[in-house]
Structure formats: structure tokens, C-alpha cells
């Protein structure tokens, strides 16, 4: 029995053939590593078992990770790190974008000047900050001493609290430019007529910002904040270069902990577990975030679009 293929079937086959190469690459670089991480997280894989012999250990890794003495404080610290840093980036980004959107002489130059922290490779930027924070040779310590705030060299990265907030400052420094530029682009998309109409009606600058600019750029702020949150949550190189998660774990976030476990201690299985936990936590966070903002958006009509 031989049934000639219908035209629709041929078209479908052809479509699959066209996306096959891309699908294969995606499988190779995304799906398989994800699956492997997931699989590893249920094994006792370490450097010693690398040549084979890693065994399935069930939920043991998860029990150990979540039940660990430091785990709650690491999770809390990670979220605190994320909220603080993203909050600062969004606020500074809004202020910066508003200033850059204003009609001032030479605003092209100012717009270009925002870019460097973002253009400079992160590692190089971080080394710059490393020197700034240095106790004996650092600019900041020197200034603080000259201004009489400290009475001797102060090593910003040597103390738990100051190390954490120093890392936040660096992270904000690196992360703000892109947020600013996205906000600026969104602000420029707001039709000028709206501001003029409000101005004719007597609305002040602040009123116009509050009732026109903010609602109009809200979709951008929401998506940018989420992206920034994910990046900050997983921000690794800044902390690693500045403090390697120290002193005494004061800057150890989940991603640092994952790296320390998996790569430094060669506990691949336990590290993979942490990576999976990061995924789950971020997924849950994103879901809650988007749901809440969906409600808010509906109530205030942020997502309203006009032709």
C-alpha cells in the first residue's frame, strides 16, 4: 500500500527540515546541559568519580543543601543583594534617563558619557574598583581619611558589612548604564504631544512625570527590572573579583556558593543541586513578579497601547 503524501505533509516536513539545524544547536547548547545539570544534582559526582562511578543518591544533595547551616543566610543575602542592587539601578536609571532626556546643551556628550561602565569589560572595571577600595593605596580610603571620616587606612573589602555594600556599589555602577539607556529610549518614545497637552492644562514637571512619563514607560521599567533582577541574582564576576565571596562569606550569594561548591571543592553533584535551586528560585520569583505586575497593570492600565 502506497499513499502519496499530501501537500500539507510535505510542507510540514520541509518546515521541520528548515528548523532542524537550529533545533540541533539549541539542543546541544541549552537542553542537554540543562538536563545534565539536573541529572548531576541527583548524583554524588565529584572529582574522584569523574572517570565513572558517580551514583544516584536521590534527594540527598537537596536535603544537605537546603538543610545546611549557611543556606538560609545565603538565600536571604542573595535576595537582599538583588533587591538592593536592582532597586538602586532602577531609581538611578530613572533619574539619569530623565536628565538625559531633558533638552540641555551638549546632551549628546552626556549620553555618551553614561556608557563607559557598561562598555569597559566587567573584569577591568572591577579591578579599578578593587584599587579604589584598597586600604593603603586606595583613593576612597585616602579621601575618607583626609575628610576625617576615618582615622587611618580603611580597607573597604576587609570587613563584612563594608565589603557587601562595596560590592553593591560596584554592581550598580556597572549595571546602571544599560538600565538608563533603556529607560531613555522608552521616554523618547512618549509622544511630545502628551506633554504639551498636559502643559497647556497647567501640569507641573513632576505632575507630568508622574502621570505621563511613568505610566508610559512602565512596561519597559517592568521588563528591565525583571531582566536586571535575574542578572543581578546571577551576577558572579563582580563579587568574585572583588571578594571571592568573603570576608567570611559576607558576599557569598547563591551563585558564588554554587561556584565554590562545584568548581572549587570539585563537588559537581552538590554544585549542580545549587544551580537547580537557583533556577527554581528565579523561576518562582519571576512568576510572582509578573503575576503581581499583571494585576497592577490591569488596574492602572500600564499596558494600554494607542495607535
Amino acid at each position: 500500500m502506497f499513499k502519496p503524501k499530501t501537500k500539507a505533509q510535505t510542507t510540514t516536513l520541509f518546515a521541520w527540515a528548515l528548523i532542524a539545524p537550529a533545533a540541533l544547536v539549541m539542543f546541544w547548547v541549552v537542553v542537554w546541559p540543562l538536563y545534565e545539570t539536573f541529572r548531576l544534582s541527583f548524583t554524588d559526582s565529584t572529582l574522584g568519580t569523574l572517570m565513572g562511578g558517580a551514583e544516584y543518591v536521590g534527594w540527598e544533595n537537596y536535603e544537605k543543601a537546603i538543610g545546611g547551616r549557611k543556606f538560609p543566610s545565603i538565600v536571604t543575602r542573595t535576595f537582599y543583594w538583588m533587591f538592593l542592587s536592582v532597586g538602586l539601578k532602577v531609581v538611578l536609571g530613572l533619574i539619569g534617563a530623565t536628565l538625559l532626556a531633558s533638552n540641555i546643551r551638549g546632551r549628546g556628550i552626556f549620553r555618551a558619557l553614561v556608557m563607559p561602565p557598561w562598555i569597559v569589560p566587567i573584569a577591568i572595571g572591577c579591578f579599578g574598583w578593587l584599587w579604589l577600595y584598597n586600604g593603603h593605596f586606595g583613593l576612597l580610603s585616602n579621601f575618607a581619611e583626609m575628610a576625617g571620616i576615618t582615622d587611618g587606612p580603611y580597607s573597604f573589602l576587609a570587613y563584612k558589612q563594608s565589603a557587601f555594600y562595596s560590592a553593591v556599589v560596584t554592581d550598580v555602577w556597572i549595571g546602571t548604564p544599560m538600565v538608563t539607556l533603556f529607560f531613555l529610549a522608552a521616554m523618547q518614545g512618549v509622544p511630545r504631544d502628551l506633554y504639551e497637552a498636559a502643559y497647556v492644562d497647567g501640569a507641573s514637571r513632576w505632575y507630568r512625570f508622574r502621570r505621563i512619563t511613568m505610566p508610559q514607560i512602565m512596561p519597559t521599567v517592568i521588563s528591565m527590572a525583571l531582566l536586571s533582577a535575574i542578572w543581578t541574582f546571577n551576577s558572579f564576576e563582580i563579587i568574585w573579583i572583588l571578594t571571592e565571596g568573603g570576608p567570611r562569606g559576607a558576599t557569598t550569594t547563591l551563585i558564588i556558593d554554587t561556584f565554590k561548591t562545584a568548581i572549587f571543592s570539585y563537588k559537581f553533584g552538590a554544585g549542580a543541586t545549587r544551580a537547580v535551586l537557583v533556577c527554581i528560585l528565579l523561576g518562582v520569583f519571576s512568576l510572582i513578579y509578573l503575576t503581581v505586575l499583571g494585576w497592577v497593570g490591569k488596574k492602572y492600565g500600564y499596558a494600554g497601547v494607542q495607535k
Partner: peptide, 16 residues
């Protein structure tokens, strides 16, 4: 004491 109607109407899309 003037009010203006714009060519684009300039309605606030996010407001009712």
C-alpha cells in the same frame, strides 16, 4: 484661558 485640541488628539493612552 485657552485650551487646545491637538492634531494627534494627544490622549493619554493609559487613562480611561
Amino acid at each position: 484661558g485657552i485650551s487646545m485640541v491637538f492634531q494627534s488628539y494627544a490622549l493619554y493612552p493609559h487613562l480611561s
